[in-house]
Amino acid sequence: MLFRSAARTSRIASSSLSTLSQRRLASSLVFLEQKGGKLNDGSLTAVTAAQQVGGDVAGIVIGSKADVDGVLAQVKSINGLSKIYAAADEAYANGIAENVTPLLASVIPSKSITHLFGAHSAAGKNIFPRLAGALDVSMISDIVALEGEDTFTRPIYAGNAILKLKSSKDAVKIVTVRTTAFSKASTEGGSAAVEEVAPVASDSNTKFVSEEIVVSSRPDLGSASKVVSGGRALKSKESFESVLDPLADALGAAVGASRAAVDAGYADNSLQVGQTGKVVAPELYVAVGISGAIQHLAGMKESKLIVAINKDADAPIFQIADVGLVADLFDAVPELVKELEAQK
């Protein structure tokens, strides 16, 4: 009797100890990216990835005082975050990697962080590798899945192969997340405490000069639920717009483009979908006059429903399209717009 109860006690003790040590092991930090005080939605998918590791998940916001104050109201209620670290300084105003990196490099060890997650966005791709170099650890880019604390899955060769890797040698995992591969954490129900973090000086020579952001009334390409994309077959900038814009408006879709269309000057390069542009995974992807090169497919083949309109019946895009229409786009697209309008 005595023996048995002692055994039970020790079993309980050891099992609670192991949970405790696991908790202590995993402590994730999510880089909550903001621009002008507005949270980048992609960061919410990084929160989801961090939660899958288990253990504690905190967030960090970095920016000018005004921007940090602005974004804090939004991020405090993100579900699943225990704490928000806030670092405000004018040096962080434009997210210059040289200024932001020393701060992250000091927060990570001082807060015993084991995993840093962020969106695989332009900012994440700019800051995270520099941080990995500064900490002398690997970089785990663009993950689509993870298992436990150290096993990650990511596409390689433009999405034509899937690599599963284990990171056991690095003390800190620096991870960017493919935002279309994880759901967004809810921005409601959380109540994270805010802890201010003192800025860390940098001796950087780099200064922000200006930026040109393409303003659009349509949904953002990266997060749109529908995307209409055009390729080289659109023939000119004028016809790209006059043919695709009405279709995008009829569907409530964002406009994308193939590299060929961008290189030919039909569309701005911020619209490029593909390995070297944006990776999207909307409910509906309509590829108009796009042949379907590997490079382009890498950016859209995770879309739920792919529709292709192309004159060439042998175009590779038809091999992956759920619905294909072999037709001249200059006839088919206006007709499609008319039909869609009639449905409304």
Binding site: K164, L165, S168, I306, F318, V323, G324, V326
Partner: peptide, 20 residues
């Protein structure tokens, strides 16, 4: 530093055929 566990082919996408 990183160990490759596996490299596999992505899930094949089935083309859904064409409409007229």
């Amino acid at each position: 530093r990183l160990e490759t566990i596996s490299v596999s082919a992505p899930a094949e996408r089935q083309g859904g055929g064409k409409v007229e």
